[in-house]
């Protein structure tokens, strides 16, 4: 298809362009507002909330990072999410490759159960998982939450990667085998490089999902010292709602990582979301 469709005449294009522009402005404006209000002192904000700052400052971010626990939360989030995504990718790559290319006994049943557990909403899991983890004394410990994040992400990851790896031609794998490469060697130097786009897509999607997760993070890490960023922000937003500049800084800090990811990996994110439709 060419870049322009022949369905509308030229004159009709201007109103459409303007409508789309207005809509884009309504999406962008809140971000613009957050940026300007986070960069000014509270008094300056109260004088003229809708205008531009009369005085620019980074104090809100500094206070937020050091005194309101957001710095600690940011680091905690980064640690938990990166660890969970890494473990999940390793397990999902192993399982996805085996399901795609090996005669795993009961593979139809295994795939079907992975697909059907994707439906389980986290509300159903939260009480039993809390009780289980508290029995192992893992509530309030990063490892408990990491385990839960790995488990809840795996069904989709395995499904996604088995679809990705299935498109690798069998001849390539046979060739690797003739060269004497075993399971791990083939997986590491043939399958992973060929499926790298799929793996990257999955990594980005899973990172976003876990970074933004609230329910498990609130319940499984109740101590303030171990709080992740998203629940920490929820707390700050609740306690200091009238400190708009501070809360704006918190919102921007929490949103910064997903937005940065979108900026550098938008093609992966869009690709991954398209898979969601076909399943």
């Amino acid at each position: 298809m060419t870049t322009t469709s022949a369905t509308l005449n030229k004159k009709a294009r201007w109103p459409i362009f303007i409508a789309l522009l207005l809509l884009a402005a309504s999406v962008i404006y809140p971000f613009f507002f957050l940026i300007t209000s986070s960069l000014r002192p509270k008094l300056d904000y109260l004088e003229n909330p809708l205008g531009l700052p009369g005085e620019w400052t980074f104090d809100n971010f500094i206070a937020l990072w050091t005194r309101y626990g957001a710095g600690q939360g940011f680091m905690n989030s980064l640690f938990v999410v990166v660890t969970a995504v890494a473990i999940e990718l390793v397990l999902a790559t192993l399982a996805g490759y085996a399901l795609a290319k090996y005669p795993v006994p009961g593979s139809k049943f295994i795939t079907a159960s992975f697909v059907s557990v994707m439906l389980i909403p986290s509300q159903v899991l939260i009480l039993p998982i809390y009780l289980m983890l508290s029995q192992f004394r893992l509530v309030g410990d990063f490892s408990g939450l990491i385990l839960v994040y790995v488990a809840t992400g795996l069904p989709f990851s395995v499904f996604f990667l088995s679809v990705t790896f299935r498109s690798i031609p069998n001849e390539v794998l046979e060739a690797a085998k003739l060269d004497g490469a075993g399971f791990f060697r083939t997986l590491w130097s043939v399958v992973s490089p060929m499926g790298v786009a799929g793996i990257a897509t999955l990594a980005v999607l899973q990172f976003l999902g876990k970074w933004n997760e609230l329910l498990f993070a609130v319940i499984l890490l109740p101590d303030n010292s171990k709080r992740l960023l998203t629940p920490a922000l929820a707390q700050i937003g609740d306690k200091f709602l009238n400190e708009q500049p501070l809360v704006s800084a918190g919102l921007l800090l929490t949103a910064s990582v997903p937005l940065l990811l979108l900026a550098v990996a938008s093609q992966y994110i869009m690709r991954g979301l398209a898979v969601g439709v076909s399943r």
Binding site: L91, L99, P103, V104, S107, I110, V148
Partner: peptide
Amino acid sequence: GRIIGLAAVLPALVVVLGFMIYPVLFA
């Protein structure tokens, strides 16, 4: 191939059984 395949699926399967399917049954 079956043994290797099953061994590769097993870790993911165990985690999902333990932390998704068992909790649902527990609930």
